[in-house]
Simulated scan of single mutants.
Amino acid sequence: MRSSQAITIRRGVPPGAERRAAELYWEAFGRKLGPALNPPDKAVGFIAAHLNHDRAVAALAGDRLVGLAGYRHAGRALTGGTAGDVLRSYGLLSGLPRLALLALLERDPAPGELVMDGIAVDPAHRGSGVGTLLLEEIGSVAAALGYRRVRLDVVDGNPRARALYERRGFTATGTERTPYLRGLMGFGAVTTMRRPVAATEGGRG
């Protein structure tokens, strides 16, 4: 664990914080995920029930979860749930189109890449360095697992996040235009950004 002022960074979602983690994730990505998982309360419950606790780094203020960043490793990401889970939760008729929408958001990692599964920070703690601490810890996780790069995807409707990533050394390597999703999910382009894993990052944790 590491601390900065009143914020502690740890690996993994703390036991009992599943609902809080899902709320933070939904607050950050609900506009994008809404068409696939709405209504919001059901969506938050679904995310909470299928979290992979060990695929995140978390920021705590005291014992309250105020931020988290997920990542994908060995086929598992922070947000889990199989196609069968979606169909059981939403029903066959409603679940099938939801699965199609979720498939549009899938991104396959290249060899040697740790893919981030989103970063979410409590609005009251934004601008206080929490996002930077989470990104630093993701770099440490990537180094510990033997990855050469960290990759993330940022939508065009989130310039604040992109600015943070650029400040932390991420470089845009390509943009996919998705105008057909702007009305549905709120974004019309997705930019892929990558950052090499520094050798010194493996020593933190």
Rank of each mutant, 00 (worst) to 15 (best):
R151Q: 13
V57D: 07
L135P: 02
H53R: 15
R194M: 13
K32S: 11
Y25R: 08
G202F: 08
R148M: 05
P179T: 06
L114E: 02
R98A: 08
T171W: 07
R148T: 01
M185D: 04
Y90N: 00
F29L: 12
A120W: 12
R2F: 06
L99I: 10
R194T: 15
A83N: 10
A124L: 11
I138Y: 02
L93I: 14
V57H: 01
A161G: 08
L184H: 07
E176T: 14
T132P: 05
P159A: 02
G112F: 04
P109K: 01
G70N: 10
H50Q: 05
P15N: 13
A189P: 11
T178H: 06
G118L: 09
R160I: 11
A163H: 13
T171F: 13
A28P: 06
P159F: 07
S128F: 03
D85G: 01
R182V: 00
E201L: 14
Y165N: 00
R177C: 07
R182Y: 00
I7E: 03
Y71L: 10
G84Y: 08
R72H: 12
A103E: 15
A21I: 11
Y165H: 05
S89D: 05
V121H: 00
S94K: 15
A103K: 15
P109Q: 04
L145A: 14
L33V: 12
G84M: 13
I9H: 02
A69S: 14
A74N: 12
A43R: 00
G16N: 09
M1G: 04
N38R: 11
H53N: 04
P196R: 01
N158K: 01
G67D: 04
P159L: 08
